[in-house]
């Protein structure tokens, strides 16, 4: 009980000069919250770099059906890269937009009846902090339903690192029949 008494007496002393003490408590509290430091965990996203000379496709590029092309991009991370995915879908209704500062001219809007769709995920060899993706791809010109529609498409790249941070790039491209 003695413990409590002395504690109480202290608090009574406290309330005698409440102004000063009050301000002090407030200051300590604000100081303690503003010093909230971060843990040492990775908080950086990986990077998709399309600035090198032979990166492909880049914004506003044209790809032709049945004609092989090289997908080339440079990936990097402060620690370890994870995986990446590529998605190609139509932009006939102008719904998608490029993440790049570009101004590609789009064709008039049209209804998708048999557009080309591509989705795939790719592994990156383990324990790499930088990687150059280099894939030869060919877009077929038709499927069982007939010839694919040509026009505006969206080339979407998603990249992760091992911790689960991710970054995306969406490019406006055209896919045409030759």
């Amino acid at each position: 009980m003695k413990k409590y008494n002395s504690f109480t007496r202290n608090l009574i002393a406290f309330s005698l000069k409440p102004w000063i003490n009050y301000a002090l408590v407030a200051l300590v509290f604000i100081f303690s919250i503003s010093c909230d430091s971060s843990d040492e965990t990775d908080t950086e996203k990986p990077v998709i770099d399309l600035s090198m000379a032979d990166a492909y496709p880049t914004s506003c590029a044209t790809i032709y059906f049945d004609e092989p092309f090289n997908f080339k991009a440079y990936f990097s991370d402060n620690f370890t890269l994870g995986s990446y995915s590529i998605d190609i879908h139509n932009n006939f209704d102008h719904h998608s937009h490029s993440t790049e500062e570009d101004d590609c001219t789009l064709d008039d809007k049209k209804t998708a009846t048999n557009p080309y769709v591509f989705i795939n995920d790719y592994e990156i060899p383990e324990n790499l902090s930088s990687y150059e993706a280099n894939l030869t791809m060919t877009i077929p010109s038709s499927d069982a339903s007939g010839i694919f529609q040509e026009g505006d498409y969206h080339f979407y790249i998603s990249l992760t690192d091992k911790e689960g941070w991710s970054t995306q790039k969406g490019l406006s491209i055209k896919i045409l029949h030759k």
Binding site: G82, S83, Y84, S85, I119, N120, D121, S158, T160, D161, K162, E163, G164, W165, S166
Partner: peptide
């Protein structure tokens, strides 16, 4: 948990 994989 956000993983490093992608769905296709």
């Amino acid at each position: 948990n956000p993983t490093s994989s992608h769905d296709r």
